[in-house]
Amino acid sequence: MSPRHVLVVDDDDSIREVARMTLELVGGWQVSVASSGAEAWQKVRELRPDAMLLDVMMPGMDGPTTLQRMREDPDTPDVPVIMMTAKDVPMEQRRELGLAGLIAKPFDPLTLSDQVSEILGWSA
């Protein structure tokens, strides 16, 4: 079985790199990255990842807008999305967006892959 493929989307280079490294090294997954909502939307269409970690606050197209566009696009798969944010997202908005879960920033790199696995129900 091929490794899980996760798309990490964040406008902060260091957060993107730390998440990529930990998910590859600790989780053993294939990881792609995007630095904006527009880039993420395009990569989801091209790569068809198993899941996406999506930053809430980004310039241009923010996380919620990116997710809304993905859900409205018939060519975009129904990829499970975990939002990463330093702010709380109300439960009602989480349901409206169809989020799989939420990870608080700053996250612990050593437990990130475990958090993602737990949220998505992936066995270790």
Rank of each mutant, 00 (worst) to 15 (best):
M1K: 14
S2A: 14
R4G: 11
V6D: 07
L7R: 14
V8D: 11
V8K: 09
V9C: 07
D10H: 08
D10T: 09
D10K: 10
D11I: 09
D12P: 02
D13W: 10
S14M: 13
S14I: 11
I15M: 11
R16I: 12
R16V: 15
E17Y: 10
E17H: 08
V18Q: 02
T22E: 04
L23P: 11
L23V: 08
E24Y: 04
L25T: 01
G27C: 08
G28M: 08
W29S: 03
V31T: 07
V31C: 03
V31Y: 08
S32K: 05
V33P: 09
V33M: 03
V33N: 02
A34Q: 04
A34G: 06
S35L: 00
G37I: 03
A38N: 00
A38I: 00
E39L: 02
E39W: 00
W41C: 01
Q42S: 06
K43T: 12
V44E: 06
R45A: 10
E46A: 13
M52C: 06
M52Y: 01
M52A: 12
L53V: 07
L54H: 05
V56Y: 02
M58P: 09
G60Y: 10
G60A: 11
M61K: 13
D62H: 10
D62I: 14
D62C: 12
G63K: 12
R69G: 01
M70W: 12
M70E: 04
R71T: 03
R71S: 06
E72G: 03
E72A: 11
E72T: 01
D73Y: 08
D75C: 07
T76M: 09
P77R: 15
P77W: 12
P80M: 14
V81D: 13
I82Y: 08
M83V: 15
M83W: 07
M84K: 08
A86L: 04
A86E: 06
K87C: 02
K87D: 05
K87T: 09
R94G: 00
R94N: 00
R94S: 03
R95P: 00
E96F: 04
L97T: 02
L97N: 02
G98W: 12
G98Q: 07
A100D: 10
G101T: 10
L102A: 04
K105R: 14
K105F: 06
F107N: 08
D108K: 14
D108W: 07
L110V: 06
L112A: 13
S113L: 13
S113A: 15
D114A: 15
V116K: 06
E118N: 13
I119L: 10
I119V: 09
I119R: 03
G121Y: 06
S123G: 04
S123V: 11
S123D: 05
A124G: 11
